[in-house]
Design a binder for these strands. Structure first.
Lengths: 192, 192
DNA sequence: TCCATACTTGGACAGTTGTCAAAATACAAA
DNA sequence: TTTGTATTTTGACAACTGTCCAAGTATGGA
């Protein structure tokens, strides 16, 4: 990404970025990711190729931006500065609901791309990183040997694992059950 | 992969595949993966491009083959048909030692590729799948709600997570400590 | 040994990619 | 409105990709 999406940009820049992201979302809903070309994105968005490369390095970079737009809504609140398991589960509920909002998009993506495709991995990886960032600094650990960063990594992958199971693995699981799964899987290092 | 690597192939086929894999390993040790082209692989291996495409769909497909050659050595033995935590840790030791054998390669890869690059993700994902396959069928679960497949997925990602931390994250951790980490992280669903 | 079959190779192909410099346009401040 | 700056667009470029076919070469069985 050549423009920092966290900084406020001019109206024109945002409009253009939105057009590209929209084109990508539309393409994603229709066909496998590896059949999507930059040319096609530009045609859909009705911008020339050079403009695409003004904003993004390649189509993965645009993907990053697309996930960013979705993840923007994730705003993890940390009521107490020490994050324990119940706080994590609270935050989990928030992300569950967010994913639920996009379940049609995810459905389409899974219909067009294998679960172990580059695309799905990219997606999973992006959100794991988002969650990692939001929990790494204030995990409240039991007295254990494992380094905190590794535990934080483990928590974020576990959260995304459960959500992947539900929203990309086509398993219909209620929020309550999902919380139970997460709780059971996490019954390790984080304080109860 | 256009030839099933599990089937025994003619000497010629194996020699050719080995040449391509060797070329890839050499390139990986030298430069970032996204700067490696099929042309370059062919030059190094001294085979024409058409031959490359006889064997592999693209450079990721060759990567699969490369990881396959490494993973071949992983032969998880299952002493008792019900896998519990101590069995998992036993198998973990085996994979730890395998990764340790290749630590110079991994070092080079990390020096040339960001930890969250396509290449590293591809690697991580491949080995997670290998481990998942080897443990999914006979996990001995506590009485829990979480589906067995999800637990198996969780175990395999946790194992790889620890190994990634050590061998790709440049953290020097002994096998004994690594086992403790894994034990702590896994203190959830698997039988003790 | 010969032959049929399978694999390898070279060359050519259209399409994609990422980059560049120069021209055109939009934009904001004076 | 004008002017200077920043962004967008155009068109062109070399390189890479994946596919194809037809000619060449191994290989193993009779």
């Amino acid at each position: 990404m050549k423009y920092d999406p966290n900084k406020k940009q001019s109206r024109g820049i945002e409009r253009t970025q939105r057009a590209f992201a929209g084109a990508m979302f539309n393409s994603l809903a229709e066909k496998p990711f590896d059949k999507i070309t930059v040319n096609e994105i530009c045609q859909r968005a009705d911008y020339p190729r050079a403009t695409f490369y003004n904003y993004f390095n390649d189509k993965f970079d645009l993907l990053d931006f697309c996930w960013y737009k979705i993840a923007q809504d994730i705003n993890i609140e940390i009521p107490n500065p020490n994050m324990d398991k119940s706080t994590i589960i609270q935050n989990f509920a928030q992300i569950y609901k967010l994913f639920d909002q996009y379940h049609i998009l995810f459905q389409n993506i899974i219909d067009n791309n294998p679960i172990d495709s580059q695309l799905v991995n990219h997606f999973i990886h992006y959100f794991t990183a988002v969650i990692y960032e939001s929990i790494k600094s204030n995990l409240n650990l039991k007295a254990i040997k494992t380094p905190a960063e590794l535990v934080a990594q483990h928590c974020s992958t576990t959260i995304i694992e459960v959500l992947k199971w539900i929203f990309l693995g086509k398993h219909d699981v209620s929020l309550e059950d999902a919380e139970d799964y997460l709780n059971e899987l996490l019954s390790g290092p984080v304080h109860v």
